[in-house]
Design a protein around this nucleic acid. Structure first.
Lengths: 244, 244
DNA sequence: CGGTGGTTTGATCAAAATCAAGTGAGGTGG
DNA sequence: CCACCTCACTTGATTTTGATCAAACCACCG
């Protein structure tokens, strides 16, 4: 299981994708009091309607944010990688309007709201960084709306895989043109608003283009350029540079 | 044309839907230096790729945030009412990843980033309020993803109209079970990911249920409960109360 | 009074959902 | 160690939803 140091390192690495951090900022983050908790795959980490008094930093593993409609169908809203704090918003938005669920076995480093408040009060640059993180989350939701509303099934899938490629790369989880993809076809369907059956067919078509190979929890990009083109992927909205 | 006082009053009223403001907060907001600019209906207020150095407070009229895909199709991401600051995020996210467009003739009160920074530095409660505003924006995008990904055409339309009803009501623009709806069927289609032709048919079906009357830029709720039910509308995600 | 942009209608088509049945791999208990 | 159970994946047939194509209609405006 991940240590507290690994947890803060993941956070720092993630923050540095999108923000400039000073050494003092890094030290301050390292000083955060954490409570590490392990979750099984598929466990519900936090639930719709709860009022958390702490934020959950994803230290190890992968998780999703999702919302369910009355008939039980699920929409996955975002996919979270190590270093993300999916419920950072709970600092200001007291009632949770969605669920967060482990995709794989996860380690969450919980940080009390009071500790986060103390941190960002002491270090304005981290306050900006955290605000920025939540704004980038929102930018991904916007792109998600475009994907769901205005792209075909094949484009949606290609776009999702393109986005993951960029994000995995940014935090060092893409090696050799491959990255972990711990999602079932059911999960993929819930992320791009399709049925699992249709995802299966679209995935086969995508494999046939030669752009990707998918299997055993891993995705291999055999022709990244083609994948990006198929998905109309333009990474501007990821704001993966402090000046953007 | 709206005055500076009307602009700040709209902002204060909007902020008070979701936040607790003290009298000092209100005075501080009233002291913001504004530059009022009128835009024609359909004018582009800010564009994808720009790097604004100021925020635009919607003082009068209605506007949408949208993003276009390469073939020219448009996805409307959010609808903005007086008091909203649609590009508040540009404080921390320097490059704009979408367009903001006037739906009706609009008056925008521009506020320099430096003035906003000064305001929120001086008044931490307003800093929280502004962060919270951007987080609520994000909550609406999430619900937008659910709508686009997991609801039928009829549900999507009913949900959109339900959401607008709540938001219009909160800022005092709903009277007599009616509120302004300055969107063409083309706009509605772009907001809920359908074609205009299909929106037309779904709208007719919705009228036939007796839940709403639509016409001449106005929507009248003849059976609000039914509309909410049709759209599976649960207002929790709007966070329209400082404690939520 | 003609143009323009929005709305409406009908006919046809395509994309994705649904229904129904397998297949296959990993994990568990007898 | 093997039988079987579960869950994911795959395939085919059919249906549904919403898109597309095409044409009118209508109101407002210059």
């Amino acid at each position: 299981m991940a240590t507290a140091l690994q947890a803060t390192d993941a956070l720092i690495r993630k923050l540095r994708v999108e923000n400039v951090l000073s050494d003092d900022d890094v030290d301050a983050v390292r000083g955060l009091p954490l409570e590490l908790v392990a979750f099984d795959a598929r466990a519900r980490i936090v639930k719709f309607g709860e009022r958390p008094s702490r934020c959950g930093l994803l230290a190890e593993g992968f998780a999703v944010r999702s919302k369910s409609v009355p008939d039980g169908e699920r929409q996955i809203l975002s996919i979270h990688l190590p270093g993300d704090i999916p419920d950072l918003q709970s600092l200001e938005l007291h009632v949770l309007d969605h669920d967060i669920e482990a995709l794989t076995p996860c380690v969450i480093a919980f940080i009390a709201h009071s500790a986060v408040q103390a941190l960002i009060t002491a270090r304005p640059s981290l306050r900006s960084a955290f605000w920025r993180e939540t704004l980038i989350d929102a930018a991904l939701f916007r792109e998600g709306m475009v994907n769901l509303g205005r792209r075909s099934a094949a484009q949606r899938l290609a776009h999702l895989l393109s986005e993951l490629s960029r994000r995995m790369d940014a935090i060092g989880l893409k090696t050799n043109q491959s990255y972990p993809l711990p999602m079932t076809q059911i999960d993929l369907a819930d992320a791009i608003g399709l049925t699992p059956v249709h995802v299966n067919r679209v995935l086969q078509a995508l494999r046939k283009t030669g752009a990707v190979e998918v299997g055993r929890g891993e995705l291999r990009l055999t022709d990244a350029e083609q994948l990006f083109k198929l998905g109309e992927f333009d990474p501007l909205y990821l704001h993966q540079s402090p000046s953007s």
